[in-house]
Amino acid sequence: MSDHQRLANDPSPPELGLSAPTSGPDAVCITCADQADVAEVVEVVDAHTVRARSAAGLQAVDTTLLADVCVGDRVLVHAGTAISDLPASDDPEGTP
């Protein structure tokens, strides 16, 4: 069973913590809101799935849209899919 299947079985598994806040000022539907999470890859599950850690917790992320994703890479995740890779954390690119 894939991670996405597991998630669908249980819409809010505490271990994966996919849900965005549902109340308070941070309450958004992150998919509707065009938001994306910065997440760090902690495990490559298969050719198109990794497990990644973001501020929201661990989540299964589809990486079909990126090439060569490795443990330690930082990716931008939207709707369960990595849409971009990010510079390494010591890369000065993108600092204010």
Binding site: S2, H4, L7, P11, L18, D62, A79
Partner: peptide, 16 residues
Amino acid sequence: VRMVYSPLDALAIAQR
């Protein structure tokens, strides 16, 4: 009617 976080979750429901 079910809320999903990703379309892949919807596909998983269909498989299940």
